[in-house]
């Protein structure tokens, strides 16, 4: 299993997520820049992708579309520490897997992520 995290690696949420995934034997790639993340997703398949809704470099909906262009079935989780109705609306139009607010705590995010990875694992075993 592997996971792509698009977030500032210095931020606690990225570090905590990285640690959680590694302790669950998930290969993790943390990238700050959405453009580089898309380039990475072109070269490699990811079972789940966690995006910072406010990452600099590309609009979040563009990032989601480009990632879905690389893999239409990509399970994308979008997280933010500063939500607004407008932002959430823009993101939800892109049909993501889960939308997470950091203020809800890591457990929510970990549950969504483990569900996404569990589905990917089941799909893999069907191959």
């Amino acid at each position: 299993m592997n996971c792509l995290i698009v977030a500032n690696p210095q931020k606690p949420v990225a570090q905590e997520l990285d640690l959680y995934l590694r302790t669950h034997a998930v290969d993790t790639t943390v990238i700050d820049d959405p453009v580089r993340a898309v380039q990475c997703a072109q070269e490699q398949h990811f079972d789940a992708i966690v995006l910072d809704a406010r990452a600099h470099g590309l609009k979040i909906e563009q990032t989601i579309r480009l990632l879905k262009g690389c893999d239409p079935h990509a399970r994308i989780i979008v997280r933010t520490d500063d939500n607004s109705r407008h932002l959430e609306g823009r993101v939800r139009k892109e049909q993501i897997f889960y939308y997470h607010l950091d203020s809800f705590g890591m457990q929510d995010l970990q549950l969504a992520l483990s569900t996404a990875l569990g589905m990917a694992s089941e799909q893999e075993s069907n191959k």
């Binding site: 939500n83 897997f97 889960y98 607010l101 549950l111």
Partner: peptide
């Protein structure tokens, strides 16, 4: 695709714990 607790929060939104205000409110799909 989601377990019930997450699904409900995704569908109808969520205001959690002591967090208040727009930035800590999940509006829901």
């Amino acid at each position: 695709s989601l377990v019930e607790s997450l699904f409900e929060s995704e569908l109808f939104g969520h205001v959690k714990g002591s967090f208040t205000g727009a930035t800590a409110t999940k509006h829901g799909a």
